[in-house]
């Protein structure tokens, strides 16, 4: 088994008197799609916000590639190789695909102190990224506003890859997509892992999770209640973890 890219130990998050997350241990490995499941308010979002640097944890530690880290902003997380693709994609509809992929980190060459964009080079790189992901987008110069929801996810993924992300967190990427589009995004998710990226996928859709994830982690009431390899579990067991009907969860919740 490959060494973990990120290890979370005893992560807790309290908002005043409210405990949103307590004592979460988790390992995230390169080349693996890890699905986070759980009901609303189970703590999934809080957990990924901690990974993404949007919230500091109240307790516990994060270790990235063997080194303890403390993120004070999403920028810190990004410089550790963690990219988050939020549900509302942070893409500029009025700019082209290649401009979006490089936005904020453009390639440029200085002529008399004026930073000129290296458009041809950016276009070439985006073209090869799109081909590599088999994203079915032919023209990197098309405005993002003209793309479908699935294609926009592909652009967001390209952007993450271009930032050299080693861990890509995807927050319900298929929530607003039609069936055919969902298929494409799931295929992209797989390809991302095959490239050696660690992928964390948040989802409500169990069949989708079983299709794409290598490992499944279930959150319930701010705790991690289950971790299973996909091959060793089935949708029924996972649902029982989510709803709390599983005897293991009951025993856990009784002791507290």
């Amino acid at each position: 088994m490959t060494a973990a890219f990120l290890v979370a130990r005893g992560i807790a998050k309290r908002f005043g008197a409210l405990t949103a997350l307590s004592d979460v241990d988790l390992e995230i490995r390169p080349g693996e799609v890890l699905a986070l499941l759980g009901d609303n308010g189970a703590g999934k979002s809080t957990f990924i916000k901690i990974l993404a640097g949007a919230h500091p944890p109240s307790d516990g530690e994060l270790i990235v590639e063997g080194m303890p880290v403390a993120f004070s902003s999403p920028k810190d997380a990004a410089s550790s190789g963690i990219a988050t693709i939020f549900q509302e994609l942070a893409l500029s509809e009025n700019l082209s695909i290649s401009e979006n992929v490089f936005l904020g980190r453009e390639l440029k060459r200085s002529v008399l102190g004026v930073p000129f964009l290296r458009r041809a080079e950016m276009r070439r790189r985006v073209d090869s990224l799109l081909k590599e992901l088999d994203a079915h987008i032919s023209d990197p110069e098309a405005p993002v506003g003209s793309l479908s929801g699935g294609q926009r996810q592909a652009v967001a993924i390209c952007r993450a890859l271009n930032l050299n992300a080693k861990l890509v967190i995807m927050d319900e990427p298929t929530a607003a997509l039609a069936v055919a589009e969902t298929r494409k995004v799931l295929a992209l998710t797989r390809r991302l892992a095959e490239r050696g990226c660690a992928v964390v996928l948040i989802s409500h859709n169990i069949s989708e999770v079983f299709e794409v994830a290598d490992r499944i982690v279930v959150f319930r009431r701010g705790r991690k209640v289950a971790e299973r390899l996909r091959a060793e579990t089935d949708p029924e067991e996972i649902v029982s973890f989510i709803t709390g009907a599983h005897p293991g969860v009951r025993a856990l919740e009784k002791t507290n």
């Binding site: 939020f86 500029s92 904020g104």
Partner: peptide
Amino acid sequence: GLHLLAIGNSEEKARLSGI
């Protein structure tokens, strides 16, 4: 120029993009 147009599209998204 790209940053200016991105801000015109959505200031919040521009900020999230690191502009």
